[in-house]
Design a protein around this nucleic acid. Sequence first.
DNA 1: TCTGGGGTCCTAGGACCC
DNA 2: TCTGGGGTCCTAGGACCC
Length: 410
Amino acid sequence: MPGLLPPLRRIAHLDMDAFYASVELLRYPQLKGLPVVIGGGRRPADEVLQLRGALPVDQFPLLQDYVGRGVITTATYAARVFGIGSAMGLMKAAKLCPQAILLPVDFDEYRKYSRQFKAIVTDIAPLMEDRGVDEVYIDFTDVPGGQREGGRTLARLIQKAIFDATGLTCSIGVAPNKLIAKMASEFNKPQGIAIVHATDLQTAIWPLACRKINGIGPKAEAKLNALDIHTIGDLATCERQWLIAHFGKSTGAWMHHAAWGRDERPVVTVSEPVSMSRETTFDRDLHAVRDKAELGAIFTDLCTKLAGDLQRKGYVGKTIGIKLRFDDFKSVTRDATLAQATADATTLRRTAGLCLKRVDLSRKLRLLGVRVGTLSKLGTSENSSPNRLSLLTQSPSEAINTIAFNDQLF
DNA sequence: TCTGGGGTCCTAGGACCC
DNA sequence: TCTGGGGTCCTAGGACCC
């Protein structure tokens, strides 16, 4: 006789409901029900934020008074009814709903609540995968009670624990894998729980638009629609080989899998960063020659901050790159790989400066970014050799670049 | 007066090596 | 003289996600 069957995989996706807006409403409950837009601008001083806790509604900053180039990060439902949505320019949104209240994004505050809800989750179910500030996957499979009611009992418990500790609500989908769980968490928002079993594929998943699959974005959706494929069910009827012919070996095969609800990816509890970056969009477009001093200062500042990020987190990186966005919104990147991984601001600045020289800078710039990739943890054997050897281990082209350093553009 | 910032992963070509 | 064929690293761009 065969042994016991392994327990069914029960994977949960937890999504905080309107996370940023909800955190802001904890601070400013007087704004409940009003059109509020979060985005743009700089975070005001703590004193101002404290003060606002008791501020009458009519004294909050309004969208119509905003000047500048920010975008909306999120908007409350009361603001959305005016046609305002995420990623919309604030100036455009101000035309749609000038009386909306505008709050600056306060990532520090959101991160605080993020850490809090994740700690509550791992206390209950330790196998948690971090998917950003307001989302996690949780493996219910081996958690006591994780199989009860298909996971509903545990989902309720987690929802209650998070609400009791933070006052925030979330939605949870539980399914045999991450792909379906992610879709399920959207089914009954807000404060929803949805349980999807493998046998529910046709009824619960196939009627949905292809775009609901995590990984199918606007481009893939448009291409699918042009091929008269609209729902996941449509996608499931496509031959695997046909999808591969249209979308490539990897994407095509994956699409076929996804449409049939297949996904074996594990819940990953630890992961190492691959790259770190800093970028900024300027208040006005800048020209490499005419605004050289200003750009140079911003460039140095980005490198300094990035070096600080690396050092604080204990990483060094070998590939240094820049990203530019021009006034026509076209972007380019350039990078260069060093012989020796670094977290040093001067090295970052110098290498990034050399990358910049490989770009045609006749157009004005709207954004400048600096990136470090091929990261390794500081103190491991491969990156602890003394720095003075680096010239010897450089390739000839790098040595030339190093020598050409005095010829920096800015 | 369009269009943030911080990430991951994939593709594709060329260099270089065996 | 016909065009080999992997494998890996580097670079650039792009799709996608939160």
